[in-house]
Design a protein around this nucleic acid. Structure first.
Lengths: 164, 164
DNA sequence: GGCAATTATGTTATCATATAACATAATTTG
DNA sequence: CAAATTATGTTATATGATAACATAATTGCC
């Protein structure tokens, strides 16, 4: 993957986006009575600062660089990630072993993730028709759905024209 | 995951199923002019003998037990897996870091995998409506699809009633 | 068949991802 | 403030995957 340049949407103010996500996360944690501690908030912010999925070890590097904190060990960051996953604030991207912010943590989230193989940009796209089709297929197979992993890998609109 | 008992479909003769898969794999490799070597065949058979996804290291254990071969090193088994993936004879289950036989290697395979979290049974289910819904969503987002990871985790019909 | 080229496998080391087990620190609750 | 709970720190290790190079098997050509 080309990691030299992060391609950002010109219509997208990323600082606002992160702040909005953070405020939403805070209110959501408050309403659930769970604690968005300093570490968890830092991990959450770092994940949101990248619109691209971040691996746990990359996250450890960033934590070390972007905070007064000394390097944390893997269990520390994984516990923060587990918390954020449980609260539905981030998603795990299984095909990349990485984590990405959830763009609508309040909804029942079972969207498709579109992942650009060139720039890494990852977008969560809701689609009722995808969900309905899966639910239909599940019921036809008498299958009780617990979790859906829907990762569509390819090229985003920005990258498909660009020289690869 | 409960690994104590493999739940098998009573209407499913597994030996026949494996043999059919193997014959199909052989003819497919022949027609493509690629070599289904002894190692690759053994890996393929072991994956098919389990209807459940198998990890690479579990596969190394099984290879050691079920063949006269001494224990192979990781690169050996991963190369065999890469070959089988390239030929479309198996799938990688990303949410489990494991591999499962492809039930229709001749088709363009972009099916949903239904994975039972209790017994591990994994089934490849084709669904035009899922594919169409994804393709529509992709085109609406000007996204060029290269690969789809569709893993639906939950409880199969056998396990949903059973005591968990 | 014999030799060169190609393809496949073996071997060693190492990287990458993730968790177990236990210790300490911070926060909440009564 | 003390006890209980929750969160984080620490060490070691499990699990998954690949790089780099060596050897062996197969294929294709003369």
């Amino acid at each position: 993957m080309n990691t030299s340049e992060k391609i950002s949407d010109s219509a997208h103010n990323h600082a606002d986006c992160i702040n909005a996500a953070l405020r939403q996360a805070e209110s959501l944690c408050q309403s659930k009575g769970v604690r968005l501690t300093k570490l968890r908030r830092q991990v959450f912010e770092l994940i949101w600062q990248s619109h691209n999925p971040l691996g746990a070890y990359a996250l450890m590097d960033l934590l070390e660089q972007n905070s007064e904190r000394k390097r944390v060990a893997p269990p520390t960051v994984y516990r923060a990630l587990d918390f954020l996953l449980e609260q539905g604030l981030i998603h795990k991207v299984h095909s990349l072993n990485a984590f990405v912010g959830c763009s609508h943590p309040k909804r029942e989230h079972s969207d498709a993730l579109f992942i650009c193989l060139n720039c890494g940009f990852t977008e969560e796209v809701p689609s009722n028709s995808i969900q309905q089709a899966i639910n239909l297929s599940a019921s036809q197979n008498r299958f009780t759905v617990k979790e859906k992993v829907l990762e569509i890998c390819g090229l985003c609109s920005k990258c498909k024209g660009a020289s690869l």
